[in-house]
Design a protein around this nucleic acid. Structure first.
Lengths: 216, 216
DNA sequence: ACAACATCGTTACAGATTTCACAATATCGA
DNA sequence: TCGATATTGTGAAATCTGTAACGATGTTGT
């Protein structure tokens, strides 16, 4: 809580740190140094310590950070107090891959409803997610107070579905369609643009540009 | 060609501009102003003009940029002279979604081979892409001079497959596995981390942070 | 008890990226 | 032909982001 101004990049790195810390915890490791976490995340130790300032968690010299405590502190910043629910629109291959990906992962942020226009999918449960007809999107999203959505519909329908989501109260969209969505200024959109990313990779592979970069 | 130092972000935006310009061309529009392209891309006009400096293409006052000429100029920078080929490892839902996504899109950068360990898929052609067994990855990637790869295997196998790709000469990887790959410094890795991105969206949706941001 | 040491938190710095502002200029209409 | 005008290209300022450096501090071994 508190800080209203945590940067984009910092939030992304914190999310990554948390996942890495969970892995460490599963291995029974209960303490970690900034340089270890940094090396696992592909950033510098100074970066990790700087990010910790945003979290407000302090480690101790010599002993480093307590893994479980740090996981909890990052959770206090990243997670909402009550669980957040997400909707997914578009159950093609990509949509199904994503529901499988997130099934049972984070209880605080789960996909609870999926929408498609294929009547064959409606009424089924795919990867633990109920599937509804896209026409029922508005009422269901409103009823369940869903504020986060994942958009995996074809490009030609993306704007239209985004409009439905926004009208139903969604405030954040993870957009996989290769389209720039027009949304009101209070809606946050994150574009996962595979075509752009692949061209980036191809370009830098050719150039021999070294090293990768921050998450997202 | 020429410029060895075009930034990450600029390359991503140029790729986006090119796609938007192609859409404009399909609509029969042959001239565009920086502020129009900017608004379509979700950036400022100054940003567009600055990116054009990297491309080396000049528009003309009053008339703006010629859409076809600009597409060609961006292509001169982003595309390699000869076509580049890409490989895809992991034909689960995500892998199939991606092959469908790129099928027949950019002749200069096509997925020409896919790999999986499921014998049922081997020998088939999925979305115009030949499918091979993962054990044959090395020889085939080498033979076909493939330098770009898309990694859509489960997290537990990602590092191992990445090692195979690198050993076969791959210099750029688009990684969808929620794992930080260890690769030699001359290999470029771009991470598409869905879990991180979704948490980012959930966080900023809650915060009411305004506006979206650059591609990738 | 205490000295040696490796690590943390933080401030100051450096570099990268974006925005601003304005001179230069090509086109259009009279 | 020539003035009016909207746009471009680019140097300079501002902002954002990451890095380095260093005093403070908790732990360990003697």
């Amino acid at each position: 809580m508190s800080e209203g101004s945590v940067s984009d990049k910092t939030v992304a790195r914190l999310s990554l740190y948390r996942r890495l810390l969970s892995d460490l915890l599963n291995q029974g490791i209960r303490n970690v140094y900034s340089h270890q976490l940094a090396s696992a995340a592909g950033v510098t130790a100074a970066q990790v310590r700087r990010d910790m300032m945003a979290v407000g968690y302090s480690g101790t010299p010599v002993r480093g950070y307590s893994v479980p405590d740090l996981i909890e502190s990052i959770g206090n910043l990243l997670d909402s107090a009550q669980a957040q629910s997400a909707a997914l629109a578009g159950l093609g291959n990509l949509g199904r891959a994503i529901t499988a990906y997130f099934a049972g992962r984070r209880p605080k942020l789960a996909i609870v409803a999926a929408f498609d226009n294929d009547p064959y999918k409606v009424g089924r449960v795919i990867n633990e997610v109920e599937c509804f007809h896209i026409n029922d999107l508005g009422p269901i999203v409103e009823q369940r107070n869903i504020r986060v959505a994942i958009l995996t519909v074809p490009a030609s329908e993306a704007q239209q579905v985004a409009d439905m989501l926004v009208r139903a109260g969604v405030k954040g969209v993870l957009n996989f369609a290769p389209v720039r969505l027009r949304v009101p200024p209070d809606v946050y959109v994150e574009n996962m643009d595979m075509a752009v990313c692949l061209e980036k990779v191809a370009f830098f592979a050719r150039q021999g540009r070294t090293t990768a970069e921050a998450p997202s």
